[in-house]
Design a protein around this nucleic acid. Structure first.
Lengths: 249, 249
DNA sequence: CGAGGCGTTGAGCAGAATCAACAGGAGTGG
DNA sequence: CCACTCCTGTTGATTCTGCTCAACGCCTCG
């Protein structure tokens, strides 16, 4: 059984077939959420975990005056702790960007899982570490990268994350994000995103058409973004960067 | 035994005296790191945890061209996973800002701790959750808050975190950060920080002198920052906000 | 067919960066 | 003890990145 979730977790540890079937057993039947609909579970078991099985979602924060900031993107295999819903008021929400399939792993099941499979426990732990590393990288992007660098870095990140679950080939991947989405993620306006995008196209770094990103000049894009896939904690990516080191010598 | 670390953890769960003595037993003797010196432990046990016992530190990322971004501030009681040092190259570093006392909890001790004290295990887990929540809040700040709002929000955050460990009174707290530090944390230049600071002073919101922050108008500052202490996961703060709710009615 | 979201363009403006200079204080070495 | 340096804080002038406001074509969907 090979799902997007197991493919994702396999980036952190190698899973046995018993791990896979244990995981399949503990996952509740997924529910489907339509685009632009919030994924909310009020008053849920704090130890439970929600897993995106398919589709794209995002954490975001909305101010009263209309300003919106996307805090992170959730791709297939990504987990979100529902602990946030325990707070009196939610400080942020999670919304589907495309049609999303989401499954819950109840707290009791998580406990059983950690008890019975050290590999799965480690995989989920690393998934959490990778998530916070991505968040730190966003801090760096928003703080110190220029418009073009930010956009380039985000595309590199998403391409690498999609590649890790087999949803991207060497040079292209799906890109359902609209320009308003990109703007809210990168802390800019859609007008500016549009112009920066045109610069990247003019520089022959990438093409973006029909909800699909094609990277025309991977090295150029990575160099512009100062992108180093190491922080994603993907073993595959780490091997790739090792290979690059060798090439450089 | 009441240390800054136990005070911090007591914000998440109440600790018994056996919890406290267990923690004291498992902490290695602290080492002192001078200001501006990197806190590095290469090739360390990935399960180990480094705890700041006293002083201020920061995670930061430095680009070759000189740009620097401070990713987060580490205050007394804050933990940092050394797992980052396992990567081939470190993607970011941690430096002392003031003189810092830092203690290691080896991986084996962490295992013993989780096994013998569910309360401490939960406390450390919540500490990690609070850390990622703070990181998300920084994403929001850097993405969508104006210069003045960012500065105000950071001061609110730091004051609240210091208050939680008894290092701040109602209206003031130590503030060892220089304007270059603030600039690198908030993604701006020191010149701009300086001018924004003057605006905040002119608005009679705060005073900043002699490495000490005094909040002259707490409500005004919180309102400008749109600061809601909920995300810090401090039970004390949550109670305070509940009290505020009542007052509003 | 109309409405609304998305992508695009233009003109003007503002927040923040850059460049440059200087004062004050802390530490250092002669 | 003083001269020196370096860091911090501050100010002014200028530039530029990115925002605001506004308009329009395009497409999808009800």
């Amino acid at each position: 059984m090979d799902t997007l979730l197991t493919r994702k977790l396999s980036n952190y540890v190698s899973l046995s077939s018993t791990d896979r079937s244990l995981l399949a057993k503990l996952l509740e039947p997924p529910r489907i959420v339509e685009p632009r609909v919030d994924i909310v579970e009020e008053g849920e078991d704090p130890r439970a975990v929600n897993v995106v099985l398919d589709g794209w979602a995002c954490r975001y924060r909305q101010f009263e005056d209309g300003r919106r900031q996307i805090i992170s993107f959730l791709l297939p295999g990504d987990c979100c702790d529902p602990y946030i819903y325990l707070l009196d008021r939610r400080d942020h929400a999670i919304a589907a960007l495309t049609q999303v399939a989401i499954a819950r792993i109840p707290g009791a099941s998580m406990a059983e899982l950690t008890a019975r499979s050290p590999a799965l426990a480690l995989a989920f732990h690393r998934e959490a570490l990778a998530g916070t590393a991505i968040q730190r990288e966003w801090t760096v992007s928003l703080g110190r990268r220029s418009g073009a660098e930010r956009l380039a870095h985000l595309f590199c990140e998403l391409h690498a994350r999609l590649a890790a679950i087999g949803l991207a080939d060497e040079t292209s991947c799906p890109m359902p994000l609209t320009q308003p989405d990109l703007a809210d993620a990168l802390g800019q306006t859609t007008v500016h995103i549009n112009r920066t995008l045109q610069d990247l196209r003019a520089a022959r770094l990438l093409a973006l058409k029909g909800r699909r990103l094609t990277v025309l000049d991977p090295d150029g894009l990575r160099h512009l973004a100062k992108f180093d896939p190491l922080y994603l904690h993907q073993t595959a990516a780490r091997d790739a960067s090792r290979r690059l080191e060798v090439v450089k010598l």
